[in-house]
Design a protein around this nucleic acid. Structure first.
Lengths: 359, 359
DNA sequence: AGGGGAAATGTTTACGTAAACATCGGCTGG
DNA sequence: CCAGCCGATGTTTACGTAAACATTTCCCCT
């Protein structure tokens, strides 16, 4: 519980260098200014500004004219202070380097804008609990009505204590549906579809190039992969781990290429699949003739890989939209529902999968 | 000059469903509450909260204890109203689907956070002047001290009229250094390095797979490409256009593959280079043995293309950092400098470039 | 024509904070 | 021993808006 306390700005006084020209026109026009010019009361200006009824068209036009002339802008700070709400949603995330986060964020920003809400970004540099806690504390002072968290929940836990009590939270990318409102893609379903697709093509089993251990998403995909194989009564090969990056996929791929038995690989994301494709290519194992590869995410470039990548499409835009819906519902007090909302995933079959080579 | 006027919220009254439990604890604790509990005046609380000197350590601790007990959070709206500043930077951009924008945004958010500023996102769905103008109008009401614009300036022009007069603007991705403070990567330099690299390898000339016509970035890269060839006294092949996407690169690649003379292609970004690689691969033209390919951006995956892509690295993080520096300088009134800041680019040589095939 | 009432507009007040100014008390130095 | 002063703390006020309440205006109907 630090961070309530700022250190004083070193600049000391905010006074301009004396004698300098008053270049900055201080503040903009206020309601009072508009009211004076239009010859009405401030309250009438307020009514016009907020589109409330009960203002004559004539008056309205006068006020609008005055607004234009003065270049009036409602002061959002005063507004927020009066209304007790900011019309702003905070988004906490670690990194913008994963497709999913970025697309989700984009959808959040767009949906929020449509609802008249702004989005404030709260990046957390390093995924440690301390950092997260710090971000949440800063957030507490931020002009925000609700928060959407895009991160693994075990990091969130330490932080929630310092969340302002009224703050609404929706979490993407987590399994903590019991404690928060969670929106996520149906990763298990997507994984199952991917693995089944390969089995249906005739592969005896499917290898898995997994994401990093800390990631719930990775874990869920790995679990679903294992479960699907087990259900089908297939042998479960040793899992290979990457860290989501194409480079790690390449390194893993070099090892997988050495396995003569391996005819099908399910990569936990498209970037790693890309690296895998390169490794297989370099090792002379043809895709899909010798080895089938399937990815996860359906990044825009996936269709341009060599060969075009069969992958699981995730509708991040929908995730973002539902996150916004979720927090707005909470803000409006319509429901404090917890639980997980799953956004369907969809298998996109391209050219990186085929039946196994004949023996 | 619309948008000053909201339409009234359809929800009508904000009154809670009567009789319902007062589930929402209204507002949080205020300074007055803390002051009462700590047995001091509100002003002392304010002093502690802002880290001002002139408070006994004993008193300080009492106040801090009271803050903790009440879960006090400074109300940022009131703070902003009083101070006349929001400690927030607005970022306007079109899309988060290009690497550059995303990386720049990430760096902006991080740098801003370090300076105690929050970042508010203002996505513009469709790149039309109307849309942009609307975004700027909304922005005018937003709690923002300064704006960073990541977009082509010709769209900005129509919008500036409705920018709040005091707002500071820094623009990334533009050439309007005469009117705004602009931060950009040294695209001309990067392009020259790329083209020279190919010429130095022995290629007679270099083809160009350009970005869309509307893009200044694309235009600048194309101009620099042409200039470099001309300076070197080489023939300038017909330019091929894409739209930044891998898919468009693929289509363009299919055409380029038909040109037997073409031994080297400079693609205006890595995505298009990826599509180009695929097209060349499908057409049986080996990279780099038959055709050299060079990209632009150095996206994280570029090193995992087949073959790993030689490309021009852009330091978007630095761009973001400088944008923030720029607006902060402007906010602090240290200088209203216009002009363009160029962030150096750097050629990253991987394996997609080689001397031309012997004849 | 007068009364009732709704629509239009004005007035008061509070939101939470922090600057500016006011006060209080104790310590220093002549 | 007291004037003077400084450091610690309290009081007043304004920031710009919008809800709640008050007043004026004007129209319609009997």
């Amino acid at each position: 519980m630090d961070g309530i306390v700022d250190t004083p700005r070193k600049s000391g006084g905010r006074t301009a260098p004396d004698g300098a020209a008053p270049s900055r026109p201080k503040r903009g026009a206020s309601m009072a200014d508009v009211a004076r010019l239009a010859g009405v009361s401030a309250q009438t200006v307020s009514r016009v500004s907020n589109g409330y009824p009960g203002v004559t068209e004539t008056t309205r036009q006068q006020v609008l004219a005055a607004m234009r002339k003065l270049g009036y802008r409602p002061n959002s700070a005063a507004r927020a202070l009066k209304r007790g709400e900011f019309r702003t949603i905070g988004v906490i995330l670690f990194t913008l380097s994963t497709t999913g986060n970025v697309r989700t964020l984009e959808a959040i920003a767009t949906s929020a804008a449509r609802e008249g809400y702004a989005v404030t970004l709260l990046p957390v540099a390093v995924p440690t609990q301390d950092e997260v806690r710090g971000a949440f504390t800063r957030l507490g002072e931020l002009a925000v009505d609700a928060v959407i968290v895009i991160m693994e929940v075990h990091l969130l836990d330490a932080a929630t204590v310092s969340l302002p009590p009224n703050t609404q939270v929706v979490v993407a990318d987590s399994d903590a549906g019991d404690r928060y409102s969670v929106v996520d893609t149906d990763q298990a379903g997507g994984t199952r579809a991917a693995v089944r697709h390969l089995l249906d093509l005739g592969h005896r089993t499917v290898w898995h190039l997994a994401g990093p251990e800390e990631s719930f998403a990775a874990q869920r995909r790995a679990d679903a992969w294992r479960a699907t194989l087990t259900e089908a009564g297939r042998e479960v090969p040793e899992m290979v781990r990457g860290d989501w990056s194409a480079e790690s996929g390449y390194r893993a791929g070099l090892r997988i290429a050495e396995e003569p038995d391996c005819t099908a690989v399910f990569a936990a994301n498209d970037q790693m699949a890309l690296g895998l494709l390169r490794a297989l290519h370099e090792k002379g194992r043809a895709v899909p003739d010798d080895v089938s590869v399937i990815g996860f995410d359906d990044i825009p470039e996936a269709g341009s890989f060599v060969p075009p990548l069969t992958t699981v499409h995730q509708d991040f835009a929908e995730v973002g939209r539902r996150c916004v819906q979720g927090v707005l519902r909470q803000i409006r007090g319509e429901s404090a529902e917890r639980g997980t909302t799953l956004v369907p995933t969809r298998l996109v079959v391209r050219q990186s999968t085929a039946p196994p080579p004949a023996r």
